[in-house]
Design a protein around this nucleic acid. Structure first.
Lengths: 350, 350
DNA sequence: TGTTAGCACTCTTTGTCCCCGAGTGCTAAT
DNA sequence: ATTAGCACTCGGGGACAAAGAGTGCTAACA
């Protein structure tokens, strides 16, 4: 959007709009003028409200499901609501306790903390939570280990400075004995330790290959196996919580919609694309803003978590467009801040 | 069932019953006498069929959905069908190719092979596939590795003879230096290598503790950390394929049923219980035989795979009771045999 | 001039009635 | 023993009416 038209709503329109959105978020039912006029914060008659609603509809903020129905917020309406009307909600004691419980046990593994966050988040919101990461791309190599299993196969293990472990089995070239393997491991650690995972492949062929040639027969076979092993996984891991929560939302009473959404979740690729391209901080994508037909009736709110200034991963909530934006945003903010600070304490002196 | 009553059906009843089951499996519609009388393998009138059907219903093999509807097989009917009428179906070329493709790439990791099997199996059947295992319980320890990440934390890695890798981070006691760690690792490997994972904890406290005391300060803290690390995971891993396939089955047009089933799948615990207690070979559980309300309309067919005579894990198909039993059984038999033979080749000389 | 009461109108939902089609069980004829 | 025929049952779908919730518009009001 290059030219942003500034839309001025009267206070009364704003009030009515806000109440419509709030009501619809909780009831999932179109909101009519009579219902509105009975709300305690509203002091004018249903007729007045009808007039205002007609204006709001013309502006595109609300819409009808049929000619004589009440109004529901449009995607544009949600967008406006989220951009201008959202009041940050304070979390209650129960929520805070739950979130704290993520960090209650002394867990050292990044992955487990992240996984637990996803679980708690879905329980607190009754939506589906998704956590991407933590990114291992720019971890640094701590150690490589090669353990022979039998004459033909060995297992290569790489450990990064954050404690992430990757392992892969590979075929041993013939005529390699334990001594040779030890030499290889020593050379690898000597040359590659401390280097970012991304750079390993490059370094392997440029620096290590020459050295290996001097010490090992059939070094090329070995080299390829190792290269294969240290390849960074193309995608960071996704963790889900409450995958089935969406089934309880009234907008998903239609099996077809469920199928589309569930399929997309099962594929993971689509979700990965949606999550990975977000900037740091809170991002909100409403309905078709996600550019994904399976997400027609869904909103996705993402937040990033980081160690220091380095963005590590993304934590997200997938819910219906009719989502409790305020609450979800508060929760995400809170969790991502906690997550960042705990992880920073654990790993910044790595 | 202590007393098995032998039920004798006439050839004609058998024929009619078989055609009813086959037809219902493919159409999901109750089968009426007129429909049956038109089938080419049936040469008697609809009236005759009605009489026979009344008998079959009295015997409990088929039932009506309402007073004047066609018949559908009952659970007892499916059970009889599966026990007595199933003709092993030959797999077609396409199926065989697909299954072979699991083993086409040279994969060394057990887990990956198993995971790919689940995927292929769900694609071939359009049902949900579940694979349990491979069990690491009776793997033997190949090597323990401890890699310090910084002053306070280290990561312990255990590698089994099948190439399975487990790792866990733990807090280092103070005043432990690299030399101490090396000693610990040497002692551990010396004493524990080759031992079944199950026995590690025991051996650790009985044999290793004494040795550690002689060499290391604060050995008890260390010991507990290590004990924690080598604890065997309580459940073997579950892999799924085609979790959403069930949504396409007409019996799951009801959101409530879907929710129950999906919840159960997400929990994993229930599935684990269903899979783990099966004997080796093919097992078939129909509907309520699973003792699980979420599985009311589902059947579960399991097969085990093994290395030599040692049962490694279970491979299963979850589908509606109205399932293509014959085809699924053939597929499971075929895959589990292939899986067993490939794994045996790879790992029997471990 | 902004607000509101009132009214005619619209559209969905719910329920009833009815008919059709597919199926059954039973009886009587073959 | 088999089958043709018939009366009967039940679910599904269409037509129709009434109720309810909503709207837009007009005219009256403060």
């Amino acid at each position: 959007m290059l030219t942003e038209v500034i839309i001025v709503l009267t206070d009364r329109q704003l009030l009515i709009f806000q109440v419509i959105v709030d009501d619809f978020i909780h009831t999932a039912q179109p909101v009519g003028s009579r219902t509105l006029s009975k709300k305690e914060e509203i002091f004018f008659s249903s007729a007045t409200i009808r007039n205002e609603m007609a204006d709001l509809e013309e502006l595109g903020f609300i819409e009808k499901t049929h000619t004589s129905s009440g109004r529901i917020p449009s995607e544009k309406g949600y967008r406006y609501y989220v951009d201008h009307l959202l009041s940050p909600q304070k979390l209650n004691q129960h929520d805070i306790h739950k979130v704290q419980s993520i960090f209650a046990e002394r867990i050292y593994e990044l992955e487990k903390i992240v996984q637990k966050s996803a679980k708690i988040l879905s329980e607190l919101t009754n939506y589906t939570s998704i956590v991407l990461g933590p990114a291992v791309r720019d971890n640094k190599l701590k150690r490589i280990q090669i353990v022979p299993l039998n004459k033909e196969t060995a297992i290569a293990i790489i450990i990064t400075d954050t404690g992430h472990v990757e392992n892969r089995m590979f075929h041993l070239p013939e005529n390699i004995d334990a001594g040779d393997l030890e030499k290889v491991v020593n050379i690898l650690n000597d040359r590659l330790a401390g280097a970012p995972l991304e750079s390993l492949n490059n370094k392997l062929y440029k620096e290590v290959a020459v050295l290996l040639r001097h010490h090992i027969n059939n070094y090329d076979l070995m080299l390829n196996s190792i290269a294969d092993t240290i390849k960074i996984p193309a995608y960071d891991k996704l963790f889900f919580g409450g995958k089935t929560n969406m089934l309880s939302q009234p907008e998903f009473h239609d099996i077809e919609k469920v199928k589309n959404l569930m399929n997309m979740i099962e594929q993971e690729k689509g979700i990965y694309d949606l999550l990975s391209k977000n900037k740091s901080g809170i991002n909100i994508k409403i309905g078709r803003e996600n550019n994904n037909s399976a997400m027609e009736n869904c909103s996705l709110i993402t937040a990033s978590y980081s160690i220091g200034t380095e963005k590590l991963g993304t934590i997200a909530i997938l819910g219906p467009t009719r989502m409790e934006y305020s609450r979800v945003i508060s929760l995400l903010n809170y969790i991502s801040a906690d997550l960042s600070s705990v992880l920073s304490k654990l790993y910044q002196n790595r």
